[in-house]
Design a protein around this nucleic acid. Structure first.
Lengths: 192, 192
DNA sequence: TTTCATACTAGACACTGTCAAGTATGAATA
DNA sequence: TATTCATACTTGACAGTGTCTAGTATGAAA
């Protein structure tokens, strides 16, 4: 224990909120409860984040940053790998992902640094699709394909995470296999 | 006014809640406010729905029923049309859709009649994919393709509805064109 | 020694969903 | 006609929440 510094309250609150979002969903986050668990007053968390939306924005910012890292790792392996990376990120960081995609919780327009991280992740996707389509593709085609790729990855991620997909398709041996198959289907049309 | 019967409270509450979900998201629904607006006591809505989750379940049940109707209309026109119908339903019934897909708001396991409507909609999708793949397709293939089709439609719907897609891809002339293009891309792989 | 930002604490407020108990009304039943 | 009973509410209370305002302890900078 010697020399161990206590976690700064900001980090403690953030981790607690992310864990609740992962296990029970973002709406189950009560800052008063988090404060009680941390042994501080009910207003201590608000000092660090301003208000409830501020906490969600902080979670979203961190989430988009982590998503970008995950996408970068898959970058060299093409669009299919990126699609897989997106879905896997969502499953591995459910707490972050659920908050990131709920713009009723945190309007990124009010949180520039969070919006910056979101833009960064989006641009990685855009670049990857642009590369895959080659230099002759029109911007219209690129945009359409980007929307398409994002839709596949985002749809699968949300359906697996919070939707009834896994239950409905029971008998599928392995979720990872499903993810790989869907990602391959999504990119097979790139050759057309 | 003669002969006009007042809207039953149940329907009034439901419509108000759906409108709030459409305009501000499901979390903005306050049953006490709805009750005040309807000029009844704060407990009157609870009489009809039991609790807050009960209202969400009622909205989800109605939503899945309407979704099934929309999918049936597109049924004869193939998987691409069904994909378009799904996305268009989401945009046209945002209040319902946002609630339907939030199973943290209403666990359909507790509301059999809502779960029944959800199953009905899913089975329409499954049938359509099965028909498109032909009689030689394995159940594994059918399940994978169904997950894929649902992912595309669901992803595009949620990104257009609550995500930053439309803003990110600004310059796209018409959302309807985008939907049609993405739906076509999704089904182009069926020929493989 | 004073100034000042940081990191909180303390108290109050309006608002929420929910539990419990009461009331008015109209149909079914004896 | 009198009683029973479910329906559709009303009323009141409770714990819990986010947020506003004001106060306090602490440590660094001037």
């Amino acid at each position: 224990m010697s020399g161990a510094t206590a976690d700064p309250l900001r980090r403690v609150v953030l981790n607690a909120a992310i864990a609740i979002a992962r296990d029970e969903g973002p709406d189950a986050i009560s800052l008063r409860k988090v404060a009680r668990d941390a042994g501080v007053s009910h207003q201590a968390p608000y000092h660090h984040f301003g208000d409830r939306a501020g906490i969600f924005a902080a979670i979203a910012e961190e989430g988009f940053s982590k998503l970008s890292e995950a996408l970068i790792k898959s970058h060299s392996q093409g669009t299919s790998a990126m699609c897989e990376a997106y879905v896997r990120f969502a499953l591995d960081h459910a707490g972050h992902f659920r908050v990131m995609m709920r713009n009723d919780l945190c309007d990124l327009g009010n949180y520039p640094s969070a919006a910056f991280q979101a833009d960064r992740a989006f641009n990685l996707l855009l670049e990857n699709v642009t590369t895959a389509l080659g230099k002759n593709a029109s911007t219209e085609t690129i945009k359409t394909r980007t929307a398409y790729m994002w839709s596949v990855a985002h749809g699968l991620a949300t359906l697996l995470l919070d939707g009834p997909l896994e239950k409905k398709l029971e008998g599928i041996a392995d979720v990872n296999v499903l993810i790989a198959h869907v990602a391959r289907l999504a990119t097979s049309s790139f050759s057309n």
